[in-house]
Nucleic acid binder design. Structure first.
Lengths: 230, 230
DNA sequence: TTGACAAGTGTATAAAATACACATATAATG
DNA sequence: CATTATATGTGTATTTTATACACTTGTCAA
């Protein structure tokens, strides 16, 4: 068959496809969605900002490679990541054929502390998504896709659990939804919907923000790990 | 940093990750969902049945590689394929580290003719999904994931257009949904929903099936290419 | 004490999903 | 020709879900 010949002809080339993982790590900080960027230290794209990622080793799973890169480049550990897509344009890297398997994660803004303790702030930074400039490689495209994936995930999975390790108030969750989805909800209807799902429970505690009426503190119900939120 | 050392140590290994595409091509034949399998001619897994796929060349996109493999192994052309997932277990191939980028497609059963003209039926076969035995590699896992993907796609995209190139009747579409989703719909409500979306138009023609009342023939509205069906 | 601010709460209306029964067009049969 | 079997076609009432909308409450600061 014709294909067999091509196969042989292209075999050496085929051996040279590189595999990278690239993760868009988000947080929501006072109603602003931010993404974690790192400054590249090597060519290509030296000194440009980029999403977190790198080459996958032969002896690790893609997901493991992604988590390793996150830890090495930012100090963050235990991030829950979700598949987002695959990027494989032939010229996406100037060095060699390279495909990128991309992931999405979201973390509590307080983990920024961890970041600043272990990594020079010149090397890693939380950037509001509408302030992101030209990134290395095709990372701008990857980021756009990641935001789409994030929008799908917050209405169909419990991905936001990772954002509220110490409980949350309903207005807080609402602001997070509004920031990520880019639209507003009626306060009464949002609360009604969230409570009707019976995925969260009232802790009985309250929490105060600068001289306003205290808000009730809720937490995700542990018994319903993987059900969708919206 | 510690990772840098590992990087160097693993570089040779990293160069040896192979990239495959694997496509689950479905059809629905008289209410039965079938998948297209091909018999392997070479080791590993020689003579076992497998999904359609193979190594990606360095000079082609993943999607192009998938379509090339489909054409080479089954003769099918012009199949619209959708991303399904990535499979990367370290031992999924006994030969080398291999990651599989997987796709899903669905085609009109009448293209089976094309198949039998160009390919020996010993080499390729439509198999009902509940009759699929042990496949090569991890293709049973890939098939399960592909079915999940297909279920999502038929309620959120116009993927079924590819299944009805010459128009369709509403009961036909309903049977297809029921076969793929594994549940039944009320006939009146299904028709109401489908028509309310205004994605299909009445052709004015009718079609007959063996001594029953003729059914109206519809077609997808060309102006609304990419809207979701359910 | 008053004002500013965000949190908390209930009801009425509209839209969507669901449940449900009978008439009709064809081919096959006697 | 009348009868039967079979799958198609059609409308309405009910339930569920989503949406729209206004006033009261608790805290801090002035």
């Amino acid at each position: 068959m014709q294909g067999e010949k091509n196969m042989r002809k292209n075999f050496e080339l085929y051996k040279n496809i590189g595999v990278h993982t690239i993760t868009s790590i988000f947080t929501v900080d006072k109603g602003v969605v931010k993404v974690l960027l790192v400054k590249r230290k090597n060519e290509p794209f030296k000194d440009m900002w980029a999403l977190v990622g790198g080459a996958v080793y032969n002896n690790e799973l893609l997901r493991e490679g992604a988590l390793r890169e996150i830890k090495e480049k930012t100090g963050l550990e235990g991030v829950k990541i979700y598949e987002s897509g695959i990027f494989d344009k032939l010229d996406r890297s100037p060095i060699m054929r390279m495909i990128a398997v991309t992931y999405v994660g979201i973390v509590d803004i307080n983990k920024v502390n961890v970041l600043s303790e272990t990594i020079n702030t010149e090397d890693a930074s939380w950037v509001p998504i509408d302030k992101v400039k030209r990134l290395a490689y095709d990372h701008n495209d990857i980021l756009l896709k990641a935001l789409d994936t994030l929008k799908e995930l917050i209405v169909s999975t419990d991905i936001l659990k990772g954002l509220f390790p110490n409980g949350f108030t309903i207005p807080e969750v609402q602001k997070t939804y509004e920031a990520i989805l880019g639209k507003e909800f009626d306060r009464r209807n949002f609360r009604k919907k969230l409570l009707s799902l019976r995925l969260i429970t009232d802790t009985g505690k309250e929490i105060l923000f600068e001289g306003k009426r205290p808000a009730k503190l809720y937490k995700f119900d542990k018994r319903k790990e993987n059900k969708s939120v919206f």
